[in-house]
């Protein structure tokens, strides 16, 4: 762990974690600190702009994206506990600023140092055993690869690798794992009937997996799936990967 002692990572915590799932953020901090990382948190941060960008409001997205560029200008690494928000910074910012050389250069610089949580652990901190973070989890877990993490960032094996090495954790296979849960940001309220259809299938597959906990790297997907599970009075818990890796998380 001392190997990482010189690494400083600033958290972009995301608005969903900040306002709805602060415990996830706490676990992210604990896990990173256990791995020896010096964790920073620029407190002026709010939202990456994805909700407005995905709905077509590029001007508003640009306003918010500029703030992120500014706040993390001097960071060594930026760690984001969300595949979707990390994808916004790494992929969509380059589209947002493609008409402005200066800002595009800044966006590229930010993209180059921004990592989603699981890939930061595996690819930067070189964690190959979750026990390094003191993780332990008694129970069965199934993993939902969120779409932006999988297809925008191409992060496929990293979360699985971490989960596999958690002592006591038994992984269950999820049928149709790579099919979208139906969240899709404003899509979920613009076309609730389609979104519901999608999450219904996802929930059925999760229930059929036999796992007692669903893990993902995106709280927005888990808010959708978890909300549907709760409506069905399901006992299946939803957890961010960081909560599984954090031994102090309940």
């Amino acid at each position: 762990m001392t190997a990482n002692a010189k690494i400083t990572a600033d958290l972009f915590i995301t608005c969903v974690v900040d306002q709805l799932y602060p415990d996830v953020g706490v676990s992210v901090v604990r896990v990173l600190r256990r791995l020896g990382v010096t964790v920073g948190f620029p407190t002026d941060q709010t939202c990456c702009g994805q909700p407005v960008y995905n709905t077509g409001y590029s001007q508003q997205a640009r306003t918010l994206a500029k703030r992120v560029l500014e706040q993390f200008k001097d960071s060594e690494y930026v760690v984001v506990p969300s595949g979707s928000c990390a994808a916004t910074i790494r992929v969509f910012y380059l589209e947002i600023f493609d008409d402005d050389t200066e800002l595009l250069a800044e966006a590229k610089a930010l993209a180059a140092k921004t990592y989603e949580f699981s890939e930061f652990l595996v690819n930067v901190l070189k964690v190959d055993d979750a026990a390094d973070c003191g993780a332990g989890h008694e129970g069965t877990v199934t993993y939902h690869p969120s779409c932006h993490l999988l297809r925008e960032l191409g992060v496929k094996s990293e979360p699985q690798k971490l989960l596999q090495s958690v002592p006591g954790l038994e992984q269950k296979e999820l049928e149709g794992a790579e099919i979208c849960c139906g969240f899709g940001g404003t899509f979920s309220v613009k076309f609730p009937h389609i979104s519901e259809g999608m999450v219904t299938d996802k929930v059925a597959n999760i229930q059929a997996s036999g796992a007692d906990t669903l893990v993902s790297c995106d709280m927005s997907c888990l808010m959708n799936i978890g909300g549907a599970l709760n409506r069905q009075e399901s006992a299946i818990k939803v957890r961010h990967l960081a909560q599984i890796l954090d031994p102090e998380s309940e």
Partner: peptide, 23 residues
């Protein structure tokens, strides 16, 4: 807008503190 969400899904309420406050 929220009612479109809660037709078939629950939505978490705001917790006591934000991450900002916890930090």
């Amino acid at each position: 807008i929220l009612s479109r969400w809660t037709k078939s899904r629950d939505l978490p309420t705001l917790p006591k503190q934000t991450f900002h406050e916890l930090w």
